[in-house]
């Protein structure tokens, strides 16, 4: 139920809507819950609404920890 996926914002539209790219599929979602969304950002989308931004720097940090099996450093 709470499943949500990362999508890339490709166009902002009227009425707090945005066109996003979800793995090659373009669809329109509402960005009413996240202020000042900009084109190129990644947001997490759930039941047609962006819930939050995805922070690319934090994602990179986590991926680095994962790649070395979680031996050094953990998310803070």
């Amino acid at each position: 139920m709470c499943l949500a996926i990362p999508v890339k914002v490709i166009r902002l539209k009227e009425g707090s809507m945005a066109t996003v790219d979800a793995g090659g599929v373009q669809t329109d979602i509402s960005v009413a819950l996240v202020s000042d969304v900009t084109v190129g950002e990644y947001v997490i989308v759930h039941v047609g609404f962006a819930l939050s931004r995805l922070d690319p720097d934090e994602a990179e940090k986590t991926l680095k920890i994962l790649a070395q099996g979680g031996i050094d450093g953990l998310p803070a």
Binding site: A32, L33, V34, S52, R53, L54, K61, T62, P75
Partner: peptide, 19 residues
């Protein structure tokens, strides 16, 4: 602790909560 730092912050989404 928070493993999901790419999406989850300490304060979450206050705008959504206000609505």
């Amino acid at each position: 602790e928070n493993e999901y730092t790419r999406v989850v912050t300490p304060s979450g989404n206050p705008e959504a909560r206000a609505l």
